[in-house]
Write a protein that binds this DNA or RNA. Sequence first.
DNA 1: TTTAATTAGGACTTTATTATCTTAATTTAA
DNA 2: TTAAATTAAGATAATAAAGTCCTAATTAAA
Lengths: 156, 156
Amino acid sequence: MLYTKSAEYAIQAMIYLAEKNSPKPVMISEIAAAYEIPQQFLAKIAQILVRHRLLIAIRGRNGGVKLGRSPKDIYIHQVVEAVDGPPPEQEQCIIGLDYCSDEQPCPLHNKWSVIREQIKEMLEAENLEHLAKRVIEKRLAMRELGFDDLIGAVKK
Amino acid sequence: MLYTKSAEYAIQAMIYLAEKNSPKPVMISEIAAAYEIPQQFLAKIAQILVRHRLLIAIRGRNGGVKLGRSPKDIYIHQVVEAVDGPPPEQEQCIIGLDYCSDEQPCPLHNKWSVIREQIKEMLEAENLEHLAKRVIEKRLAMRELGFDDLIGAVKK
DNA sequence: TTTAATTAGGACTTTATTATCTTAATTTAA
DNA sequence: TTAAATTAAGATAATAAAGTCCTAATTAAA
């Protein structure tokens, strides 16, 4: 909806790392298993995140990846942009008109502009520290409902 | 963003017909030219819209298509659903978690639920009559700014 | 020093979407 | 009645996204 599958996987992986908060690198295979992401595909996405300094990779035995900086300084929109590329220079009209702006709005422009701005704010407001905290809370809440362990909170 | 390119073309075509408001059928080629839609592709999309009774096709010489019912009874979401298919039974979590609901929200759930509802309302609120009226207003406004004729309001 | 474990990266495959090509069916006009 | 103009529909092609396979490079452990 808001980003590609690749970006979705990237967000999941970043949240996993933030939640795990491990000083040691975490293997791609572990992350892939936790979120049921195709491992080789996630490896490709990780390469992109490394190039954008959102991840640091440690190669070789005992290697893996870790966050490129403090989770409180990593925001969702940065992850999305790294993977999906920068947004278009000019905002796209929702019904595909060439001329559509605040001055010359298409019929949906005013409603859509507001919604688009909210989406932007949502992705720019949330950092990994906060998200990880909420995932942990979610795990605890689900455990009380009888779901077992880590996996239960995210994957069936 | 909210629907496929096919659905976008469908919306454009439906608005064109509502705006033109012609008792006689309008040729696919005319609509395609107006919005720079690949003609054969639009023909395929039109077939889908006909099957969903959103369009009526008149075959043969002097043929074309016209709206399947009054433009005030055709809503954007109906066009989108016809072309893109029905939405998933269960609302999809924005970060792809299997367990995500109002009771067990993912970290973005509450913000995203509100936005998703707004999108739904937007697409369900707007009918073709209203949209066509606004496009006509837009044409008039642009004409006063020196843009020539019909095309100017939608395509360069 | 060799082997095993890991990420990096190139090439390929699969799937879905978008687009085109060709012919059939239909209808009106000449 | 024939020809022209139109939508219908099947087959194919092009493109992009998602996913897989294989080997190289790197590193630590045995």
